[in-house]
Design a protein around this nucleic acid. Structure first.
Lengths: 337, 337
DNA sequence: CTGAAAGCGCTAACAA
DNA sequence: TTGTTAGCGCTTTCAG
């Protein structure tokens, strides 16, 4: 049986309200009494029961985070940002992994709500309006994070994908590449962010004015998909004298480079390849991957910051927060004359 | 204002105890009344307040997990295991990242306790007896996970490091390597698991009987450390005709291979290199890394399973649970005649 | 089978 | 400045 406020009160010879006052600093308490209470607390090793506290204050100091899978390094980075700034404001994180299942997302949202979390961050990889509606019904601060699909009307934080893609293509062009292949995936999905990225790419190609672009559609965004598209892509490269491939995700790029490695095509000597995301592996891999940095840590940090602002009734900027991007110029793309 | 048990009771025309009984199935309730209550619950969209529930039942259904950094992929895997089996038993995970600071670990432990978590898993990378003592004082189920250092007398789950290292060395020997360098780090630390790994390596070398072993001590376990030891290691390799390097961690191996890549030494053609851990990158990297698989997911899963067993007063096996290992035979080590 | 009432540990009026 | 008291939303005796 753990020690409660009553025990402290008894030992200090005061009422429980007084004890409450000193631990919360909510009302003036005479120096003498405060000292006695503090002593009693110390002697008993008393720690307030946060559950009881939550019940009366209606503040759990908990923020629910629903993710697809912490095994994805970009999600781990986001969670890192979320946790770290949450911590600064004394919020704890309750983590739930949905593994992409919408029903699970919904169930977890309800579960979190019944645990009285004060806000929810949903990191999803599909588009799931129903869950979003459900969470919005809770009327607690909510941020939706999705690196693949957009969902208008829901607070979110991301990069400007059009601009990012435009800049990367410009960079490639600047390196002397004239024929650049953009590999996308699932671009037919209404809400896919690929739309913007393709547009950015096309705009840069168009601005350059020398060549038309090349588009290839992979089956997905994973390393395997990157590897599997290898044969098609290399064929395309050879037929059209393409010198650079801009992959819509790092994983795709890594998979493609792996395919090249296995088939004795040298990157970047024979072919320049860049990615998008700057996931952890991008800088570890050899050749180091040239890529667009999506600041995952910051995205998480800003997301929870927004929730906390809302909780504190601070002024909120617009619903969609855009974070700055950077082109990470590394080894996988070389300059050609 | 959210709907409470009172609202349900009123709408259903029964007492709150009856409502409680139907939601908990704790006592018989007549079919008719049950139906009415269920209807009311449904109509109001009632969800029990878990905080209030926790207060009276003293069960928070929360398990606290203190980690160093979710950015480490092996930790992400452990957390994945923890979360996934926790979920099966209806436990939620509260995550706290200490970034290796012992004071922070301790503070979080106390914080978690005051949030009434029912158990704690501490994933640490240093040895911190004080924190362990503190947590043990809580008298709640506790598991300590540390891939670098051992702490006797505290429940933990790991692999048998001696055996793992022995097996890997055997495998290298079997590939025809006679001169194998083992690169360690921090082996002088009393509690370091390196002791066991070095012993396993030495035993295999001794059993083989042909050559003495070679030991090199890096400055740490990271990719940078692996890269930085490159010069020394390659010198050692050349001077002694070493053909294989067994690194005590995957990161060290990756760093070393990166060094080789940058210095035009081919792996495995010129030198075989293997790691230890089988972190995510090991199978993505090219060449694919030959390594010892430490089953991080399972370690997390078994750890929380143990906590839940304890919570349910099920029988507990011994304090130290050993999980089976596997040698992942991949590309970075080749057979030599 | 059902309801009234006590109480989990704490905060926050309200009095004094 | 301090104590008394009424809850927060729920579970759980104890009567009936």
């Amino acid at each position: 049986m753990s020690v409660t406020i009553k025990d402290v009160a008894k030992l200090a010879g005061v009422s429980i309200s007084t004890v409450s006052r000193v631990i919360n600093n909510s009302k003036p308490v005479s120096l003498e009494v405060r000292r006695k209470v503090l002593e009693a607390i110390d002697e008993l090793g008393y720690k307030p029961n946060e559950v009881a506290r939550s019940l009366v204050t209606r503040k759990s100091n908990l923020i629910g985070v629903i993710i697809t899978d912490i095994g994805n390094s970009y999600i781990a980075q986001m969670v890192r940002g979320i946790e770290e700034v949450g911590r600064m404001y004394k919020y704890d994180i309750v983590l739930s992994s949905s593994y992409g299942n919408p029903d699970t997302e919904k169930k977890f949202a309800q579960l979190l709500r019944s645990k009285q979390v004060e806000g929810i961050i949903l990191v999803s990889e599909k588009n799931n309006d129903e869950v979003i509606k459900e969470i919005e019904d809770f009327r607690i601060p909510f941020v939706y994070l999705n690196k693949y699909y957009s969902n208008l009307n829901t607070p979110t934080v991301s990069i400007d994908n059009f601009e990012a893609s435009f800049k990367m293509t410009k960079y490639l062009l600047g390196l002397g590449h004239e024929k650049i292949l953009y590999t996308t995936a699932q671009e037919e999905n209404e809400a896919s962010l690929e739309k913007f990225k393709i547009d950015g790419y096309k705009k840069a190609i168009r601005d350059n004015g020398k060549n038309k672009g090349f588009l290839y559609s992979a089956n997905g965004f994973g390393i395997d998909d990157g590897y599997n598209m290898g044969e098609d892509v290399i064929k395309l490269v050879k037929e059209n004298n393409i010198t650079a491939v801009f992959c819509c995700q790092d994983e795709l790029a890594i998979g493609l480079i792996n395919y090249c490695y296995d088939n004795h095509i040298k990157v970047p000597e024979d072919l320049s390849i860049c990615g998008y995301g700057d996931t952890k592996i991008a800088s570890i891999y050899r050749p180091k991957l040239t890529t667009v940095k999506e600041p995952y840590y910051d995205i998480g940090a800003v997301a929870i910051r927004r929730i906390i602002k809302k909780l504190k009734d601070e002024e909120i900027e617009e619903d969609h927060i855009y974070l700055p991007i950077r082109i990470m110029k590394r080894e996988s793309c070389r300059r050609i004359k």
